[in-house]
């Protein structure tokens, strides 16, 4: 059984069909890439999968359960985490606090327990701080723990968002263009981080424009063009797929394929 089953998902904005009857599966333990030209509907698809947005048609099943109409925070708590194409960090909070915020999904001290500062909430808090420190080191940001997110360089901010997403203990991690704006060294560090994350037990779906990275890390690729899925398969086959090459013609990425 696949971890994620996307079936005939359609999302329209007025006359524009941003995602058009898209179906695919994600199996546990793989790294799956979603690629496509700008405006292909990749981010919209992520928004639908995480209930940041609602589809007009279609269903999303996760771990055998229909989650299409679930609210976003329930989906995160069930095990699907995400990052954003335009980072959505908590700028005034430190890197460590940002990651600790991610642990919200997997901790339980509520307002009443916190108001009374019950001992178990203090313990929970300490454990969260320790685990968050580990996650920062996992993505290579150990040195930045006390820096406000706003003060961090662009490339590191993307890694911070990944660490925050990992703090929710996701079984499925959705990354929206994690390599955007990264230099070559940072991109290869990212690839290493992705393998480590997968090996810790998270399945990954990554939207990415950096074809070098996509071809290197992904087990399978879904190609979207103007909302429609035009191809799906392992990287070797996708590189040769005539429909894919046609979609990218005129795009800057064509020569990279």
């Amino acid at each position: 059984m696949s971890l994620l089953e996307v079936r005939d998902v359609t999302r329209r904005f007025g006359g524009l069909t941003a995602v058009d009857a898209v179906s695919f599966d994600v199996h546990e333990g793989m790294i799956k890439a979603i690629i496509g030209p700008n405006g292909a509907g990749k981010t919209t698809l992520f928004n639908v999968l995480t209930s940041f947005d609602r589809p007009e048609e279609g269903t999303v099943r996760y771990d055998g359960v229909d989650i299409t109409s679930w609210r976003a925070h329930h989906i995160v708590r069930r095990g699907i985490a995400r990052t954003f194409q335009n980072t959505e960090l908590f700028e005034e909070m430190s890197a460590l606090e940002n990651v600790m915020a991610g642990a919200h999904a997997v901790t339980r001290s509520g307002f009443l327990a916190a108001a009374l500062r019950l001992p178990w909430t203090v313990r929970e808090q300490r454990e969260v701080a320790e685990e968050s420190g580990r996650l920062l080191r996992l993505v290579g940001l150990g040195e930045w723990a006390d820096a406000p997110a706003a003060d961090m360089p662009h490339g590191l901010r993307r890694l911070l968002e990944i660490a925050r997403a990992l703090a929710t203990k996701p079984r499925l991690l959705l990354l929206d263009e994690p390599a955007a704006g990264l230099n070559i060294a940072e991109t290869s560090a990212l690839a290493e981080a992705l393998y480590r994350i997968r090996d810790r037990g998270s399945t990954i779906v990554v939207v990415e424009h950096d074809m070098g990275l996509v071809m290197e890390v992904s087990d399978e690729i879904v190609v979207l063009d103007r909302g429609c899925k035009i191809a799906e398969g392992p990287p070797r086959l996708i590189q040769k797929d005539p429909a894919v090459i046609a979609a990218y013609l005129g795009e800057e990425e064509a020569d990279e394929l």
Binding site: H73, F90, H104, T168
Partner: peptide
């Protein structure tokens, strides 16, 4: 800080 970010933290 960020409503979208907060939602993504559950």
């Amino acid at each position: 800080g960020s409503e979208a970010g907060a939602m993504s933290c559950g």
